[in-house]
Simulated assay, not measured.
Amino acid sequence: MINLYSWPTPNGHKVHIMLEECGYRLGRDWQVHPVNIGAGDQFKPEFLKISPNNKIPALVDSQGPDGKPIALFESGAILLYLAAKTGKFLPKSDRQKFEVLQWLMFQMGGVGPMLGQAHHFRIYAPEKIEYAVNRYTNEAKRLYGVMNQQLTRHRYMAGNSYSIADIAIFPWLRSWQNQGIDWADYPQLKVWFDKIAQRPAVKRGVAVLADLRKPITDDKARDILFGKTQYQAR
């Protein structure tokens, strides 16, 4: 059994989708354990044992590569682990594999951090700092442009086959409005986005824990997520 410790964020949904795409079914092959990041669950000692960076998601597979349990944190590493375990969504040939991996790294190093900052300064920051809003909104638009251009030449993000690159990127684009994006400016990317959204496993994945997520409106949750609580020594 695979146990996933998660919350309905883009990084959480990446792994929810991957598990379902790999043929695992929630309740049968994998279980999800909510980690309410607005309430501070990510700082509990039992969670820090498997995710020392106090971030979701984290995975524990009772049947690891050597038949022994393995614990993993970082969503990109988890996607790679599941791809290796199942033989799905990561090509076998070196050329195609590295084409996929570069777009996975593009998500981990660019799409996630930059769109997250755009979302933060546009929606959650207690004061609207014009420089920060413009900086990250413009970077979001640049990244969307890179992806749109890529999809003028390919069916999927890393070529003509669906891969972990698509699975990694898709959840981050679901908040396009909060990132200051107008889909009319990125028609090829919008076609891709709609195509991915219709996949049955994707629909199941983004529904996992979705009813638990609530808007961040209170000061305590803001402090836990963005304030001094985040930086206390563990």
Rank of each mutant, 00 (worst) to 15 (best):
P69E: 13
A77P: 02
M108H: 01
I123Y: 05
L82Q: 03
P69V: 10
L101V: 09
M108C: 13
F73L: 06
I129D: 05
T86E: 10
M105Y: 12
L115P: 01
Y136D: 09
F121Q: 08
R135I: 01
E99C: 07
I78A: 12
A71Q: 00
S62Y: 06
I78F: 04
S62W: 00
I70L: 14
E99V: 00
Q96V: 00
G116T: 02
K88E: 08
T86I: 08
Y136K: 11
Y124L: 14
R142W: 03
A83I: 08
T86N: 10
H119E: 12
I78V: 10
E130W: 00
R122V: 01
A118D: 07
D61S: 05
K128L: 07
N134K: 14
S93Y: 04
G109Q: 08
A71T: 00
E99F: 01
P69R: 10
I78D: 13
V100F: 09
G64N: 07
T137G: 14
L101P: 03
M105E: 07
M114I: 15
A77N: 12
S93G: 12
L90T: 07
Q102P: 01
M108N: 11
M108I: 14
L115C: 10
Y81Q: 12
S75K: 04
K88I: 03
P126W: 07
Y81D: 10
F106A: 05
I70R: 13
Q102F: 00
F98V: 13
D66H: 10
A71W: 01
A140R: 13
F73Q: 12
Y136R: 11
M114S: 01
F98C: 06
H119R: 12
F98W: 15
V133M: 15
L82F: 09
A83H: 09
Q96S: 13
G64Y: 06
N138Y: 04
Y144P: 05
Y124D: 13
F98S: 14
A125P: 02
F89D: 09
I78R: 11
K92A: 15
L101R: 08
I129S: 01
I129K: 06
A140W: 03
F89T: 05
K92W: 00
P113V: 04
A83T: 03
V100W: 11
Y81N: 10
K88F: 03
R122M: 09
I123A: 08
G67F: 10
A125N: 05
V146I: 15
L90W: 09
Q107E: 15
M114E: 12
H119D: 13
T137A: 09
L90A: 02
G64K: 09
K97Q: 14
T86P: 06
P113I: 08
F73D: 02
I129N: 11
D61N: 06
V146D: 04
E130F: 00
G109E: 08
A125Q: 07
Y124V: 00
Q117P: 05
E139Y: 02
L72V: 00
P91L: 05
A71M: 03
K85Y: 02
R142M: 11
Q63E: 14
A118T: 13
E139W: 04
A140N: 06
Y131L: 04
F73H: 11
F98I: 12
I78K: 12
L115Y: 14
W103D: 06
A118H: 09
L72W: 05
D94I: 12
P113R: 13
E130R: 11
F98Y: 15
Q117H: 10
A71N: 02
L82D: 03
M114K: 04
E74C: 06
G76W: 08
A83E: 08
M105W: 05
A132Y: 00
K92V: 10
T137F: 01
